[in-house]
């Protein structure tokens, strides 16, 4: 017996990262802007996305969504009400989406015929942050009911986000939401990040959000 050290120097999620890189270039070639929406369960990702899809459709843009959940296709059915093409990914116990699941569920979709593709991740503030899905923009959502210190508790996720969206602003006052503290905490974790304060129910902040989406889209 002889002992030997073998250097691997290898990413543990190498397979996911390689697949995500492939997806990213596929999205770029197709000219579709891909966003990955992450938050805890109950933040209102589906409601926010439903409104976004509806407004995009009204403005003539072509948008589609993939929605991840452990079980049920309830969210996909809610989102499909917007008229946009929607597919459900059931992870059956896995707490996050992986690039392979995204790739598999895109089969048969003509990406070049889309302006936007939204991927609604499984509601979870820890695991999704490790898995690249090939998205251009990672959106971290936080609702006014969750507590202003959530970004401090989950720095991994908020630090990996490109933009932040605060949801349910219509009930901010009723739940005693401390807006200044929330904005400060997000900025402590991700300095300079663009923050949208929205209410999908009332439409608050949606115009700014849609304007952002329009300018972030690759020009054809």
């Amino acid at each position: 017996m002889s002992t030997r050290i073998v250097e691997l120097r290898q990413g543990i999620l190498k397979k996911n990262d390689e697949l995500a890189r492939g997806l990213r270039s596929q999205f770029e070639v197709a000219g579709v802007l891909v966003l990955n929406l992450v938050s805890s369960p109950g933040t209102g990702k589906t409601e926010f996305l439903q409104r976004t899809l509806r407004e995009l459709r009204n403005s003539g843009a072509r948008a589609a969504a993939l929605v991840g959940d452990l079980e049920t296709d309830n969210d996909a059915r809610r989102l499909a009400a917007s008229g946009a093409p929607v597919r459900q990914i059931n992870t059956h116990g896995i707490c996050h989406l992986e690039a392979e699941m995204v790739s598999k569920h895109l089969e048969g979709w003509n990406l070049a015929g889309l302006d936007y593709l939204f991927i609604e991740n499984v509601g979870n503030l820890v695991c999704p942050s490790s898995y690249d899905l090939g998205e251009k923009i990672r959106v971290a959502l936080l609702s006014v009911t969750e507590g202003e210190d959530k970004p401090l508790k989950y720095p991994t996720l908020y630090n990996s986000a490109d933009v932040a969206v605060i949801t349910k602003m219509d009930i901010a006052e009723a739940v005693g939401f401390e807006r200044t503290a929330a904005l400060k905490n997000i900025n402590e974790i991700r300095p300079g990040i663009r923050i949208f304060e929205t209410s999908a129910k009332m439409g608050t902040g949606m115009a700014e959000w849609l304007a952002y989406l329009a300018q972030a889209r690759p020009s054809r």
């Binding site: 050290i5 250097e7 691997l8 290898q10 990413g11 490790s130």
Partner: peptide
């Protein structure tokens, strides 16, 4: 800060 890597492994090789 985001690394998630296998650096190396130590093995006993068979003769």
């Amino acid at each position: 800060g985001r690394e998630l890597e296998i650096d190396s492994i130590e093995i006993d090789e068979a003769e």
